[in-house]
Amino acid sequence: MKEMLSKEHVHFLNSQKRRKVFVLLAQIGTLVVVLALWELLAQTGVIDAFITSCPSKIWATFVELIGNGTLLHHAWVSTWETVVGFAIGTILGYAIAVVLWWNNFLKDVFEPYIVVLNSLPKIALGPIIIIWAGTGKASIITMAVLISVVITTITILNGFCNTDGEKILLLRSMRASRFQIFTKLVAPSNVPTLMATLKINVGMAWIGSIMGEYLVSKEGLGYLLVYGSQVFRLDLVMTCTIVLCALAGVMYAVVALLEKIVVKRF
């Protein structure tokens, strides 16, 4: 910056910066304190490490599972299922929203069905999915798609329908076709809606894939979690949970970054 900042301005910027640093320190501090307390209580026998596990054991399990490749394999399987479910759910949901926006009659016809489907706990469809899609990856991906597709349709359609009516009027006065109204106005002005939906869908797709793995799978983090709890290896359960947190966090961060790049203008 070329221009000189006033003393007060510099002071303001510094205090802003300081606050940011404090927040970050407090965030790290919280994590450290929780982990330390957990470890301490387990070591001194106040809590039973067999039931609660503890950070040192989790770390040991993590290193072991990384070493023999188990963890990477299962994490990869779950991530793949989630990403595929996420992509199909989002694209399908968007496509359905476009069709319903396009045709008001269809929208009126299908609205109650969508509302019911949205309220239905998708896990209840588990047995049907297993019978129809088998006990493999197809079932898991179907679950991830089902969980994300309805909410995508609802959110995107809502965004489409809330497009500024005056701007539509302007386009109509220019003799725009419905297709042009969509491509020139409705789609671009709903890019932020799409980005918000992507963020929601990261979570939805993970719920879907892990739930699917609970139901049917022979591999994946959901499978490892169920296996760990059945043989009462809480170290394994905790390790998987933490890895899952990290993966979901990374995927969310990627989408958030995408949003930051894309949304600037919308």
């Binding site: 500024d164 005056e166 701007k167 009027l169 302007l170 020139k184 106005l185 671009p188 002005s189 890019v191 203008r265 919308f266």
Partner: peptide, 10 residues
């Protein structure tokens, strides 16, 4: 020409 300019922000 409408009441507001209705320029597309994007």
């Amino acid at each position: 020409m409408l009441q507001r300019d209705q320029l597309f922000p994007f």
